[in-house]
Write a protein that binds this DNA or RNA. Structure first.
Lengths: 330, 330
DNA sequence: ATGAAAGCGCTAACAC
DNA sequence: GTGTTAGCGCTTTCAT
């Protein structure tokens, strides 16, 4: 920067200003500086700028997996919402694992993000503490935690499970099953199952048809295997909710392979409103949680908080409403 | 850090060492320091460490889109490969747009990555220049550029297109079509089309059945629409390659909806070896390019380069071989 | 194994 | 609109 300043006959401070958007530098001087920088092959050093200004210029976000269209949609929403703010997103993947999340959050906070966004409302005690003391806005998403750390933009996964029971019952299905993963890693998937089972019990329906198999996130293949197990253990099952559209698609394809008619012999529903569920033949009944909109709302919230348009101490809990999208499989 | 040092009765330098892995600090002193840090709620500041040590601790990577299972697999491979190196991945999305890539690369380089990985081998002149002058290892992936900037871990997209023509012809299909996007944004998809068309011409086959519709990456829905166009314009088409498994699935589902038998009436193939192609009924013939392995190899290469196990000036061009996975649709 | 001194390359704060 | 001064919070380097 000193070299550029010298070549343009100004001080480093003026060079610094010339590289900012709205700084007060005359057009003439700025042009001279940018030309000098170009000639010297100068590349601005954000790290030094960050240290000096005590602003890192990024927002940290953790998502369970990069390979999931739902979280990808949320990240896309955040990216769009933050586009013109000068903030970048520093992304980390927890692999559906709260211990990994703890490690990741520790790492991310060392990079001094201006806000931190986490997927889910359950964390290790140490992780909670780190987030609480982070000194920057914290947003939990994809959940509606009972005791939020900071702000929330999410929905109730249990309600999503209940909602599908309502839909099934309305259609006259009474012997209902649920397919999901077999560990406690995917806490949101677990919440959907809990809501599903609770709704069954509330209505006095059997709540035994639950297949837990495979490490979350369960895939198409595991959905197919679970469907086989479901219909062999409980051949009278009328409708099955799967923890995601991917497993629902796997279950559906298994039925197609075996000549089991969907929904005539058994109805199937998924979760997440993936493109796949819409394009599949038959199309898959699912639940839309507004993944993309979550991202947009999170970005808005973060910007409002950072720009002081919203006071840091007014806790925002933005609850979205999951909606059943009725299609052919149920 | 000074506060921690004071509380632990050491100098800041010793605190600094205590926070590194392999630094020479006595176990006793280290414990005392970590305890003091914990009590004070001290969080190490990576930004300052980065500035001082002139090492940012991350590798920058650009991918066209976060919502794509293929690139997600590559990123997963890189993440796994870099896990124990202390390097993090700073991810940017180009939206299949070389202008956006140029902007993004400019941003990323200001954060002083220790290496930069870009998807694809075509860039704006300015972008090429930035990468060339970056002073850190550059790896181009998912392509086999004629004139690489630095290192390459990829494959020939044109060969992938040719490969599918070979397969179609071997199966006796001679009236062949291609479905892809309608702009030049997805240069890799375009290369696959070029390879496909060139292979047709080499064999003296008609090369007119090409549908270009929709902004890349084309979706399931656009694949379906393109399939309708294909069979209405050229009803005698025997086999169609789609630019990706997603559009192939859309095309396939459209055929199912219309009672067109696949592959008896028309054969379909995709690209990318998505899970979807395997689980779909009928299962989709596709091309596997080893997306996950690309990520692993890139990570290995970057680590070798940064650790000096490989000289910076020996240009690595690692060509992977796309393979046809024969399934039911073709 | 530990410490002292001197920066890393920028920007805040204030001056003019 | 531009310049001067004094750091930001670490690590490098060289001692001991």
């Amino acid at each position: 920067m000193a070299d550029v300043a010298h070549r343009a006959n100004v001080s480093t401070m003026t060079v610094s200003r010339a590289f900012k958007r709205d700084a007060s530098v005359s057009a003439d001087t700025r042009d001279r500086i940018l030309k000098a920088a170009e000639e010297l092959g100068y590349v601005f050093d954000s790290i030094a700028a960050n240290l000096s200004s005590r602003r890192s210029g990024f927002v940290a976000a953790t998502i369970p997996s990069i390979n999931n269209a739902n979280f990808a949609d949320t990240v896309r929403g955040m990216t769009e919402g933050l586009r013109d703010s000068g903030l970048e997103i520093l992304l980390g993947f927890t692999d559906y694992n709260v211990e990994e999340e703890e490690r990741l959050v520790g790492q991310l906070l060392q990079r001094r993000p201006e806000a931190i966004i986490v997927t889910g409302g359950r964390h290790t005690p140490r992780c909670r503490k780190m987030l609480t003391n982070a000194g920057v806005p914290v947003v939990e998403t994809w959940d509606l935690p009972a005791d939020p750390i900071g702000h929330v933009v999410g929905f109730s996964n249990a309600d999503a499970g209940r909602l599908m029971v309502d839909h099934f019952v309305k259609r006259g299905y009474l012997r209902l099953g649920f397919i999901g993963g077999d560990t406690s890693r995917d806490t949101r998937g677990l919440d959907r199952r809990r809501g599903f089972v609770a709704a069954l019990q509330d209505r006095g329906l059997d709540a035994l048809r639950v297949i837990a198999s495979g490490v979350p996130p369960i895939s198409m293949r595991e959905g197919a295997a679970a469907m086989i197990e479901m219909i062999s253990r409980w051949p009278d099952t009328q409708a099955v909710m799967c923890v995601s559209d991917l497993s629902a698609f796997g279950a559906l394809m298994e039925c197609v392979r075996r000549g089991i008619r969907v929904p005539d012999d058994v109805a199937i529903a998924g979760f997440g409103a993936y493109d796949l569920a819409e394009q599949s033949v038959p199309s898959i009944t699912t639940i839309d949680v507004g993944a993309h909109e979550i991202g947009i709302r999170v970005a808005e919230l973060v910007l409002d908080l950072l720009n002081g348009r919203r006071a840091p101490d007014d806790r925002v809990v933005l609850g979205m409403t999951p909606k059943v999208i009725v299609r052919q499989t149920a």
